Computed example of a mutant assay.
Amino acid sequence: MKLRIKSTKTTILILGIYQIVGALLGFYIIASILLKTGEINGALLLIYLVAVGLYSLSFKAGSLLIRKQHKRGLLLSMLNQTIQIFAVGVGAYTYNFISGGRLGGGVEFTNGFEMNMDVALTSRFSFAWNSGEEYYLYINLLAVFLIYVCIDIYEELFKKDKAVSITEIEPRSEIHA
């Protein structure tokens, strides 16, 4: 069962545009935060560089898809979406990366047990250590769905049926001494 648009070309184009728009939103967010930041130390610079790298991955994947370099574009898209599946907070360490949108939910354990749903069409990046006590786990179901779509398109375009039937196998000739 295919959970996507019937036209593979249209699906690839939409996926490419989605990833480019998500990356551009991420770059905008980083630029606006940098303009408000007074002084940048080494750790903060590292966080910003990681964020730029992740949004660059999203931009590259989308541009490859639009330029019809489908194999590399789909592989980078799957990597990009895999990085976006989980958002976690364990004690003083947190990670959350979204490029484009999110649809999912999770559990927050910081002040008891809370279940939350989250829907948004924007980019987000947060990475922190030694920043307090937070405990949560969120799953981005949109990223899971987009991985499924990428795998489906990849198999359609690049997987050849390599299954060999029993009738195609020739009997081995053995030499008996």
Rank of each mutant, 00 (worst) to 15 (best):
G101A: 09
L64Y: 10
K71E: 13
L24F: 11
G26F: 04
E134A: 08
Y28T: 12
G42S: 15
T11E: 15
L25C: 04
V90C: 04
Q81P: 03
R102D: 08
Y135H: 13
L34R: 04
A23N: 02
T94S: 15
R72E: 15
Q69N: 14
N41H: 11
I139T: 09
E114I: 06
K36M: 04
T110S: 10
M115K: 09
L142E: 12
A92V: 05
A87P: 02
F113H: 09
F109R: 09
T10M: 13
L137N: 01
S56R: 01
G42Q: 14
T110M: 03
L76R: 08
K159D: 10
I153Q: 01
N116A: 11
T8G: 01
T11Q: 15
Q69T: 03
A23Q: 03
F97P: 03
R67N: 09
G73L: 04
I5E: 15
Y28E: 10
Y28S: 13
Y55C: 01
I151G: 04
T94R: 15
K2V: 13
M1Y: 15
V88D: 07
I147M: 02
L45Q: 10
I139K: 04
A143T: 02
G91P: 05
K6M: 07
L146P: 00
N130D: 12
I40V: 15
A143H: 03
S126P: 00
L137D: 02
G42V: 12
L142C: 07
G16E: 03
E155M: 11
V90D: 06
K68T: 08
N96F: 11
I47Y: 13
N41D: 15
S77I: 04
S63Q: 05
A177N: 09
S32E: 13
A143C: 01
I47W: 07
Y154V: 03
E133F: 10
V52P: 01
L46Q: 07
F109Q: 07
Y154L: 04
Q84L: 05
I147V: 06
S32K: 07
Y135C: 00
S7K: 10
I153H: 01
G38S: 09
I17V: 14
G100S: 05
I5G: 06
R102G: 06
A143R: 02
L15Y: 02
L141G: 09
A163R: 14
E39V: 13
G91C: 06
K160N: 12
K162H: 11
S63D: 06
L142A: 14
Y135K: 05
I139S: 03
G16Q: 02
V50P: 03
D152Y: 01
L65N: 00
T122L: 09
E170M: 11
I153P: 00
S123H: 03
G112H: 08
E170L: 14
S77E: 07
G38F: 07
W129G: 08
S63E: 05
Y138A: 00
E39G: 03
A87C: 05
T82W: 04
I29C: 00
Q69H: 10
Q69P: 00
T110G: 05
E133Y: 11
M78E: 11
R102W: 07
S99K: 01
K6V: 05
V90E: 10
L64G: 00
I20R: 00
E155N: 14
N116R: 14
T167H: 12
G89D: 11
T8D: 12
G100P: 05
R4E: 12
Y48K: 06
N116M: 12
G104C: 08
I47K: 15
K6T: 11
F27N: 02
R102K: 11
E174N: 08
Y95E: 08
D161W: 05
N41M: 01
